[in-house]
Structure formats: structure tokens, C-alpha cells
């Protein structure tokens, strides 16, 4: 749910990074945080366990620039990927404007990817959203690993509607900003359509 403030001339949008445990959601945010000019980013918050697994969410506010005199701010969130944190995932999806689904390219994680995509669909539906209508970008992460599944196969299984998708290796930053730009674009286009 975007928030448009005419008084401060700001538009705020919420983007959620979703995906199975250890797929690289937090790594995406950490890379964005490390490579962004201090003027445009706020503090990154990570509510994580002692072993650095996301417990509740990571949060990173980003100011991208102005559109028609309105400051455009994106609030990036990650969900905890581990299966048993489902209640937390539902809470974080509330008011979402766009989703990045981070898939783990490793062959042995394909089932976890599918399960997480299914979980995203269910949890969005519970909030009254339809996965086919929410701005969605898919990131095929960990493409640098030797056991990465063929891209065609990943697309067939995870991206049947041909949403924008990107190959990535988030630890070295490959594909991270491309994904972010794409989802921001999708969100703004969606809001534009809503405004018509």
C-alpha cells in the first residue's frame, strides 16, 4: 500500500523480498546498502538470530529521486525464509506494493523454491492480493554456483507468466540493482495504472 503525502510531497512504496531460507534475500539488501550513497539511504535494520538468520525482517529505506516533484521512497523488506516463520511472513506482506521473489538456483533447492512460491501465493491471497496482479520480479540467484539448475528449467517452473526476471549472484552484486530497478519500475507502472 503506497502512501502519498501531498504535504511533504512524498511517495512511499513497500517492496518485499520473498524466497526460501538461505536464498539470498538479506544479501540483496546488504549489497544495496553497501553500494548506495549515504544521502539516499536510511539505516538498515536486521532483526536476526545470533546465527544471522532473519528472525522477523530486514528493513532498508531508499530514496530514489523525484517524479513530478514528488520524492520517491522505497521501503525494502525481507521476510524470514525458514518454513516455520510463516506467521511473520504474513505480517510483512501487509500493504506490499511489489515483490521480488529470490530463487535459489541450486538444483537441490528447486523444491524449496516451489514451496516458497506457493507459500507466497497463499499468503498474498490471505491479504486479499492476487499473485498474478501484484508487481512481481523474479531473481534467479546463486548463478555462480556449479550446481545451478539450467535457467530455462527455472523459468519454466517459477516464472510461467514471464514476469521480469534476472540472473544474479547477490554476494558479488551481480543482478542485484537490475532486480531492484525492475521491481521499482513495475511498482510505479502499477500505481500509474491505478491513477488512471
Amino acid at each position: 500500500m503506497s502512501f502519498i503525502n501531498y504535504s511533504s510531497r512524498e511517495i512511499n512504496c513497500k517492496i518485499v523480498y520473498y524466497g526460501p531460507g538461505l536464498c539470498g534475500k538479506t544479501t540483496n539488501l546488504q549489497y544495496i546498502y553497501s553500494k548506495t550513497n549515504p544521502d539516499v539511504k536510511g539505516k538498515m535494520i536486521s532483526l536476526a538470530t545470533e546465527t544471522e538468520r532473519t528472525l522477523f525482517f530486514d528493513f532498508l529505506p531508499l530514496a530514489l529521486g523525484q517524479i513530478r516533484g514528488f520524492k520517491t521512497r522505497f521501503h525494502l523488506y525481507t521476510v524470514p525464509g525458514q518454513v516455520f516463520y510463516d506467521a511473520s511472513r504474513k505480517l510483512i506482506l501487509k500493504g506490499v506494493d511489489g515483490v521480488v521473489f529470490v530463487a535459489d538456483s541450486q538444483v537441490e533447492r528447486m523444491e524449496a523454491n516451489l514451496e516458497s512460491m506457493d507459500n507466497l501465493k497463499t499468503n498474498l491471497a490471505e491479504q486479499g492480493y492476487d499473485l498474478t496482479k501484484v508487481p512481481l520480479v523474479i531473481q534467479h540467484n546463486k548463478r555462480d554456483l556449479p550446481n545451478a539448475a539450467p535457467l530455462d528449467e527455472m523459468r519454466r517452473m517459477l516464472n510461467p507468466r514471464a514476469n521480469p526476471d534476472f540472473e544474479a549472484a547477490a554476494t558479488v552484486g551481480r543482478g542485484v540493482f537490475e532486480t531492484l530497478k525492475s521491481v521499482a519500475r513495475e511498482v510505479l507502472r502499477d500505481l500509474k495504472q491505478m491513477g488512471r
Partner: peptide, 10 residues
């Protein structure tokens, strides 16, 4: 999906 979009005027 934006039924509850919050728009705030001056």
C-alpha cells in the same frame, strides 16, 4: 490491490 492506498493532502 491498492484499495487501501493512503493519500494525504495538506
Amino acid at each position: 490491490m491498492h484499495d487501501t492506498q493512503l493519500v494525504m493532502y495538506d
